[in-house]
């Protein structure tokens, strides 16, 4: 029996999402039994030639070379799945999109002339068509497994797009916004982490990006009622998923009100 082949590629990212695959300790042997890992540099130097039945892509597009490479990868696979905040939203490195990259380069590198980088960090879907986006910073290994199982069984993955609040309540947590006055991004953030932070008395940081119908304006207004400043709101929305449209617009809106208010 020939097994379906899997390729895993990396772009600008921290490797955390790919590691989620290796982190599937208990399930890894089962994975290896049903899928052939054909091209996964993080796991093995052995590379089989394309095409690949399914391809996972981690990381955002930050160089002209990467923008070409992703097109090649797209041609080598019928199913391209992006994993993680970098690949699906541009990642934390998308903070550069608000600034001048040349300025950064001069401050950080002794020889900035050796750098060849784009002005922006953008999600893979801005460059090629993507079949499924799996969110998270990093992705949940259980969701990753679910996506692979669904692919193998030829069905739609059970990856809900509702808010973190649903998971929080299913888990039986008490809401930290209501019971402790801790600002939380859970109501505008997509589920997937099993409400990790609220479970440990912290507000959600928005790792899984915007939920299906994010009302960022209403949540931000409530944060202000709870004492947060516009500056804090800009920082909260400009995080791992800063460049996702709803979070980007909200942070721009709050930044504009800092400028109007004149307080930084």
């Amino acid at each position: 029996m020939t097994l379906p082949t899997l390729a895993v590629h990396k772009f600008a990212s921290c490797d955390g999402c790919q590691l989620s695959l290796l982190d599937l300790e208990d399930e890894l042997l089962a994975v290896a039994g049903v899928i052939q890992i054909a091209n996964f540099m993080e796991a093995s130097r052995e590379v089989l030639p394309p095409p690949y039945d399914v391809t996972l892509v981690e990381g955002s597009i930050t160089t002209a070379h990467d923008a070409e490479r992703i097109k090649q990868i797209r041609e080598e696979t019928p199913v391209l799945i992006t994993i993680g905040a970098c690949a699906t939203a541009g990642g934390i490195q998308a903070l550069r999109n608000w600034k001048d990259v040349d300025d950064f380069s001069r401050y950080v590198y002794a020889h900035p002339e050796y750098l060849d980088t784009l002005q922006t960090s953008t999600p893979v879907a801005d460059h090629v068509s993507v079949d499924f986006e799996l969110r998270g910073c990093p992705v949940s290994k259980y969701q990753l497994l679910e996506v692979l199982v669904a692919f193998l069984q030829g069905r739609r993955p059970n990856i809900p797009t509702y808010s973190v609040c649903v998971e929080c309540k299913l888990k039986g947590n008490a809401c930290v916004m209501v019971s402790q006055g801790i600002p939380c991004l859970g109501p505008v953030t997509q589920a997937g982490c099993d409400a990790l932070c609220p479970t440990y008395d912290r507000g959600c940081f928005g790792c899984f990006g915007p939920m299906e119908t994010p009302n960022t304006a209403a949540l931000a207004d409530q944060w202000k009622v709870m004492g947060a400043s516009d500056r804090e709101l800009v920082d909260a929305f400009r995080n791992f998923n800063a460049w996702s449209e709803p979070f980007r617009k909200e942070s721009d809106r709050r930044e504009a009100s800092i400028e109007i208010g004149g307080v930084r």
Binding site: A30, L148, Y162, P187
Partner: peptide
Amino acid sequence: ERCLSCTNCTMVCPTCFCSTVEDRQALDG
């Protein structure tokens, strides 16, 4: 405009009964 569609009201409500059904399979079927 104010509602977050976060679902908290329905989750805490003692009479709300809506549910969904999910099928799960082992990796090797």
